[in-house]
């Protein structure tokens, strides 16, 4: 089948029918875990760079409490969660667990002195190591879910190197937006560099998403069918309305208005818009994942 063929299959209602089959295994709980991971780690990292203790702490909690709770709620056998870490040699999930663990520890060592005033007796070399490890693991958490999804060759729409990149930019955006909001809420002035970063990230995201969709719409049928679902089908409203209109256009326009209107309320609205777009994108990516139809192969 070539890219120009019409799509001869419908969405299969069940596994006994030929057609594109929707991914239903990963639901909103996984979406939430990914989401918390991305924005939490993003916020932590941005705050680390900009030296925002509160942002670091909030980001830390979003990851350690939010992401992990969502994961645990999702697992079939939560009591065995530790097993998820057993195969870092091949599983991105396992690597993610390790990263989350490292993040929890290193983040803890950074936050403890700041909030509890307790200095940990870390050796000299530990001082620069902790922030480096925390930053690296946060960075990893920000994009590895893209790799988790990409690792499924089953779902052509996910099978792109752009996906982790998209995760990373979205996570950074989320982090930046949240950080801006927190600063504003604290009554501080957001660093202009961060505001600029936010705008550029919004543009970059839009651009990446456009490339992504364009590439996928030229790929094989299952990916094209997903594009169809996003632009015209079942997820059209969510994708065009929430991801693009609310999450990008509204976020950008409102954030450009920053400095012109009442700052705190606006910052909250901007963050809310951005987060809605972010979460919706993750959800529609999960939900619109389609498996290719299996048809009887022909000999010779």
């Amino acid at each position: 089948m070539s890219a120009t063929d019409p799509l001869p299959y419908a969405i299969a209602p069940h596994r006994f029918a030929v057609g594109f089959t929707r991914q239903t295994w990963w639901n909103w709980r996984i979406g939430a875990a990914f989401f918390f991971g991305e924005i939490g780690a993003g916020l932590f990292l941005v705050s680390l760079v900009t030296g925002q203790a509160l942002g670091m702490a909030v980001g830390y909690l979003i990851v350690v409490v939010g992401k992990n709770t969502a994961h645990l709620l999702y697992l079939g056998r939560p009591a065995r969660f530790w097993r998820a870490a057993l195969r870092p040699d091949r599983s991105w999930i396992a690597r993610g667990i390790w990263a989350t663990g490292l993040f929890a520890i290193s983040g803890f060592t950074l936050l403890l002195p700041k909030f509890a005033g307790i200095e940990l007796p870390i050796a000299g070399w530990g001082q620069p190591l902790a922030p480096a490890v925390a930053a690296a693991s946060a960075l990893f958490i920000m994009f590895y879910d893209g790799l988790v999804m990409k690792a499924s060759p089953a779902i052509p729409f996910w099978n792109s190197a752009l996906l982790p990149v998209l995760c990373l930019t979205y996570a950074t955006l989320g982090g930046a937006t949240l950080s801006l909001m927190l600063t504003t809420l604290q009554g501080g002035m957001p660093p202009p560099a961060l505001e600029r970063l936010e705008h550029w990230l919004l543009v970059a995201n839009a651009w990446l998403l456009a490339i992504y969709i364009l590439r996928m719409s030229r790929l094989e049928p299952a990916a094209r069918q997903t594009v169809h679902l996003l632009l015209r089908g079942r997820y059209r409203r969510a994708f065009l309305g929430l991801v693009l209109l609310v999450g990008m256009v509204a976020t950008l326009l409102l954030s450009l208005a920053q400095g012109h209107v009442e700052a705190t309320a606006l910052a909250v609205v901007v963050a809310a818009c951005e987060l809605v777009g972010d979460f919706t994108l993750l959800m529609v990516l999960l939900k619109s994942g389609l498996y290719s139809p299996q048809t009887a192969p022909r000999s010779h």
């Binding site: 089959t21 998820a84 499924s152 994942g289």
Partner: peptide, 15 residues
């Protein structure tokens, strides 16, 4: 050993 993460189910192209 299975923790019920469904990653395998997502990854199997054959459902």
């Amino acid at each position: 050993k299975c923790i019920g993460c469904r990653a395998c189910a997502v990854a199997c192209p054959y459902m």
